[in-house]
Write a protein that binds this DNA or RNA. Structure first.
Length: 243
DNA sequence: AAGATTATCAACCGCCCGAGA
DNA sequence: CTCTCGGGCGGTTGATAATCT
């Protein structure tokens, strides 16, 4: 017996969100806040499931989102945190105000992984590939590195230190990584387009998210700041065109 | 210029976990 | 204690854009 689906998918819209749907969802959350995602689509007049609404809000509509390319220090920090936390993207994202777990996960999978491989480091273990392979061979009955990391059951962040990689070990690995980076100008090689990353979705929320980046959570974002943000983003989305 | 290939990222899927009945 | 439900998470997919041939 499988689990019941999160919602009745019959008649629900899927795929990319339209500007109108975004507007409806944002207006609803602005006016009512978030109490129960399951009821949000119905009350907001959307033919979406609650999960889809939640995802859209978290990954795209949230006022405190910081959009645009990751800078070098952010990337370095992601690598460091990944060495400690593994693929726990939400934990990693919690260290980056305005960044989403999805965004970090995508960045890791598309860019950082390649970068590490190019440097001869295993993106899973963060160790030199030859060494990592040897270790895998030594423990043929063990699951692969990914599974090992995912298999860690920890109660909280405090317990992370000393498990898998200690902070010292992590820093050692990270230092090695930095040394490798210095000897090879990867960034200019990989990020040739970073400087002129001007896609339409790179609208910066930084101004309106200054407050939130100091630790404010979604639920504590004041209505005023949310309204300010809606005002500021209105022109960006050209909502007037369909109202 | 056109087709093929690769990169990027938004969105979905399914599982897990905690809260509450 | 058990079951149900909703939220959250990580893995994966698919559409689109960018680049290459």
């Amino acid at each position: 017996m499988g689990r019941q689906p999160c919602c009745d998918k019959v008649g629900l819209k899927r795929g990319p969100w339209t500007i109108e749907e975004d507007h409806k969802l944002m207006n609803f959350i602005l006016n009512n806040g978030i109490h129960c995602w399951r009821t949000v689509p119905k009350l907001a007049g959307l033919l979406r499931c609650g999960k889809s609404c939640r995802l859209r809000w978290i990954n795209y509509l949230r006022p405190d989102l910081k959009r645009g390319a990751f800078n070098e220090s952010e990337e370095d920090q992601i690598i460091q945190l990944h060495a400690r936390l593994g693929n726990r993207w939400s934990k990693i994202a919690s260290h980056f105000p305005g960044r989403t777990d999805n965004e970090i996960k995508n960045h890791w999978n598309t860019r950082i992984k390649k970068k590490l491989k190019l440097l001869g480091l295993d993106p899973v273990t963060h160790k030199p590939i030859e060494k990592a392979e040897k270790n895998d061979g030594d423990s043929s009955n063990k699951s692969n590195g990914d599974d090992q990391q995912q298999g860690i059951k920890l109660d909280d962040d405090e317990k992370l230190e000393g498990i898998e990689l200690s902070l010292d070990e992590t820093n050692d690995l990270f230092n090695s990584y930095q040394m490798l980076c210095e000897s090879f100008d990867l960034d200019s090689w990989l990020n040739q387009d970073a400087a002129n990353n001007t896609c339409s979705s790179s609208y910066s929320m930084e101004e309106s998210s200054n407050k939130s980046s100091t630790g404010e959570t979604n639920s504590t974002i004041g209505e005023d700041s949310l309204k300010q943000w809606v005002d500021s983003v209105d022109s960006f989305l050209s909502w007037d065109s369909f109202i």
